[in-house]
Structures are given as structure tokens and as C-alpha cells.
Amino acid sequence: MNNNLKNVCCSGDCSKNEKDCIEASRDLFPENILKFIEQCLKDEHPNSQLITVLHKVQDHFGYLSPQTMDAVAYLMQIPAAKVSGVASFYHYFRLKPCGKHVISVCLGTACYVNGAEAVLKKFSEELGIKEGETTHDGMFTLEIARCLGACALAPVVKIGDDIHSQVTPDKVPFIISSCLKK
């Protein structure tokens, strides 16, 4: 993927027509996403699947880039400003690439009163990054979550699909090193 392309079709003196833009958009996506979009377009309310499509795109690419969002705009025939407006509204959507391991420290109420702030601080110290940042080697992204629904096991940290419960600051180095082994 050419990152210089701010938009899927082209960025300058474009003589391409609508069809080419849509072709270029199609090239970005795997078959399952294209199929899904095609199906959506037959739906009674095609635009209503925008968030579902963005989820699928993020699942595939790890994040939503301007290119992929524009491609969604073309394929679903939704204004690009709206697509990016929607994507940037929801915190679940990542607009920047993330590390291999995404560490989400829950700062929900139960986790907070059980000491999650200290856990977050420890992760931040150990990894040398602040929340929302990714380590230089691209291994870790540190994020804050607002409740993962395992409150009774607070403080809770989610890494990938795994939920670590009753995390204390001293467990942090171990958790990090066990990730590195994966």
C-alpha cells in the first residue's frame, strides 16, 4: 500500500472516473469485506452498516487509515467526511497503527478503586510509553479501557484476547516478558 496516497484514487490531477476509483478501492480489501459491503448495498438501509464495515476493516488492518476509510466511502457511497467523522467518534476505532501487543489497562470504577492507576503507571514506566502510544520496536501499544466487564476481578488488564485479572504493579514485568515470549 502506498502511504503517500492520501486517497484511494489519486491525490493530484486525476482523470480517473468513478469506476476507476471504485476499482482502486476494491483492490485494497480482502474478499470477505467486499462481499459484505456488496451485501450491505442491497440492504434496506445500506448506510447503517458503516460501523460494522469499519469494524471489519480494523480487524483486517489493525487500524483505520485515511486510505481504507476513503475506500469504504467509495464502495458504500457515503461522503468521506462522514466516514471519518464516524470513525473518529468511537474510541474503539484506532486511527493509527498499533503495536503487536495491545495492552489495555482497565480504568473502570472497580479497577480504579482497586489500584489500576498504579498498574497503568508501572506499564508506562516499564515500556517507556504513555497511554495511547506504541513502543519504538512496534511491540506494544498501551491503552486505557473503560471497563472490560470483569470488574469483580479488578484490576483487569487485557492483552490481545487474554484477560489478566487482579493485576498488581509487581506482576507487570512478568506479564510483559511473557508477551515477548509469544
Binding site: G108, T109, A110, C111, C147, G149
Partner: peptide, 12 residues
């Protein structure tokens, strides 16, 4: 949606 942090009835 159960966004209230500290609530997990609906998930369960």
C-alpha cells in the same frame, strides 16, 4: 451497550 464501568450484569 453496558458502558457503565463497574457493571457487568448484561455481559454475564
Amino acid at each position: 451497550d453496558e458502558g457503565d464501568p463497574g457493571a457487568f450484569m448484561d455481559r454475564s
